[in-house]
Design a binder for these strands. Structure first.
Lengths: 249, 249
DNA sequence: CGCGAGCTTGATGCCGATCAATGCATGTGG
DNA sequence: CCACATGCATTGATCGGCATCAAGCTCGCG
């Protein structure tokens, strides 16, 4: 049906093909934010390759050598950390324009898995070259640091959520975050088709899938959402916001 | 009694006084890791000021303009994010050699509070100058990126903890992390004097203070710890490790 | 000495986990 | 095209871990 944020893999399959940030419609969301045309051309020179990842396939796994960062061009990913005993935790969902792989810089190995939730395409950014270029381009350096810092801040928010919110509040926060990010990308924020299962949402929110399902049902009963499987319509965004803030307490 | 990781404020009170990374006994833990003497002197030139922070006082607050990063020289801090409704969450505890303030880079404002848990001293690192210097010193740039990346990875670990561990396991993970970091700094890792209250530990671990207290008591009953208020002796580190991994399940 | 902050311990209740059954959509092979 | 399998979602019943409420304890300090 209508799946606004999907771009099907299409016929193009030539794997390493020519890429240009300067031409990319995501340049205002992605790494090149605030760069001049000339600067962007220098970035084009290092971001030379795209890679397609089939739904369900990993972009990388924990333990893989870290070589590149990845910018999501189309599609949708989750990142996931695992404990030895098999417990795992979804640490984030990434959509177009977002960077994946920052976890690898610290140890030169990835520490989490990144898995495509739908057929996706990423731009490959060789890290060594990015480092070098960012020594020359102040704006790039600045923006790269901001991206890392914002990731840290985002995770603070998740910690707050996991540490002190109740199930319904967590789901509300999750939905608001998702719709805001879609809105930024020019999609209607009232209607979302989720790319992830209840179980994946649960893993991200520290809940079991049944609890996620019940929270969806509750929000539907309260007239806040309209839930039809993965198709979610937000009827009362203000109510979601109130839940997140905790006016209910 | 013995409080290994404390350095009392002492008589020195001259606020902005001369500092030298190249002379600092923390240089192998802190920002200058892996830098040559010459490079360190350049770093000395920008890290010109130390600041003392009294126990209970904030180093900065959420909303403050972001100007500098801070390296803990002596003492102990917590960082904390707050929601509008007053809920808050401790996002980390920082000890000697660790960097505070990375959250501010993204928006040029701090997004969390940093509070001293004991009388402390920090080295002030003006961010603009650090950025500039790291354009010249590859090693500094590299190390700075690693620090940010590791912070992201650390937070992934906390998310795993908050999302999927039970109270006792969380406490075990917390204690192991703490003792490891103390060990790195040359302190006996079997005996710790906690710098934070049960409530602060609870906030970090997503638990109430009573639950933290009960978990301590349980671990004592099981012969894993010896708990005397804030004085903790680890009798069976392997048991703690087993808890974290989940061999009990 | 007495106060107060922080810690411990007990009793009770609730939220979310767990277990289990059913429903729904998609896809595949007969 | 239908029968069936499969993966995912919903819903109900019960259980358990942690929160909450409450009382007493410890220790440092004015």
């Amino acid at each position: 049906m209508n799946q606004p944020q999907t771009t099907p893999p299409s016929v193009i399959r030539i794997e390493p093909f020519k890429v240009a940030c300067s031409n990319c419609n995501l340049r205002e969301l992605c790494l090149p934010v605030g760069m001049s045309n000339e600067q962007m051309e220098q970035l084009d020179a290092i971001v030379a390759v795209r890679r397609t990842v089939q739904r369900g396939d990993p972009l990388f796994r924990a333990g893989d050598a870290f070589v590149s960062l990845y910018a999501v061009r189309t599609g949708f990913f989750k990142t996931r950390v695992s404990a030895e005993d098999g417990r795992d935790q979804v640490t984030g969902f990434q959509m177009a324009g977002e960077l994946i792989g920052l976890d690898g810089i610290g140890t030169e190995r990835h520490t989490c898995d990144a898995v495509a939730l739908e057929d996706s395409q990423v731009c490959v950014i060789p890290y060594m070259q990015l480092e070098e270029l960012s020594r020359q381009l102040t704006d790039l350096q600045r923006h790269f640091h901001r991206i890392m810092s914002r990731e840290i801040v985002r995770e603070h928010g998740v910690m707050l959520l996991l540490g002190s919110m109740r199930a319904e509040e967590r789901l509300a926060a999750f939905l608001l975050n998702l719709t805001q990010r879609l809105h930024t990308r020019g999609f209607a924020s009232k209607s979302v088709v989720l790319r992830m299962t209840r179980e994946e949402i649960g893993s991200y929110l520290g809940l079991k899938l049944e609890t996620v399902s019940r929270a969806f049902s509750k929000l539907q009963d309260d007239g806040v959402l309209l839930v039809k499987q993965r198709q979610i319509d937000v009827l009362d965004a203000a109510a979601l916001q109130r839940l997140v803030n905790g006016a209910a307490c």
